[in-house]
Design a protein around this nucleic acid. Sequence first.
DNA 1: GGCACGATTGCT
DNA 2: GCAATCGTGCCT
Length: 188
Amino acid sequence: MLDPDYFRRPTLQVAHDLIGKLLVRGEPGGYRWGRLVELEAYLGPDDRASHAAHGVTARTRVMYGPPGRAYVYLVYGLHHCLNFVTCEEGVPHAILVRALDPGPGVGRCAGPGLLCRALDVDLTMNGSPLTPPSLFLVDDGVTPDQVVQTPRIGVAYAGAWALRPWRFCLPSPHLSRPLRIGAGAGSG
DNA sequence: GGCACGATTGCT
DNA sequence: GCAATCGTGCCT
């Protein structure tokens, strides 16, 4: 399992390193999981695409807390989105989980809303530590061939910040949006 | 108290 | 292309 201190590092480094790790959801019925193939880093408060761009509010309070916790919010009144809080306490950084390669019996996870539906993640998990048994991360030793970075999805309102290549992907048929040839730079 | 809009998704 | 649907942030 990835220790909470794993998240207490520079956010872009954490996002890169998390690609390929397993996200595990534990419930009374058993465990379900998927492999992280698409993540986005949000580096508030300077990052205009971040919810923390307007400082501490009731919603963003979790991002200002200790790293290694879940930040869950509702978008469009319909869908939940799951984030991991990163960096030092007091720095409102977070990593949005956008897609998983689904494990056994797990439904479609190509998109932040679908993923939360597939793993039964909702607002009740906001602020929860990323530790067993409910929600945690595991390194199964499988190293990604490459990590591709592209601009983030759905943040055009953020102006120049929308152009930052802070979406991290492992090439997969389960991405929320396909990678375009020539987009981003491979590494790792 | 009221209003505009959103880190999305699925149907036309 | 667009409706669904409601919490949040910001204004009065």
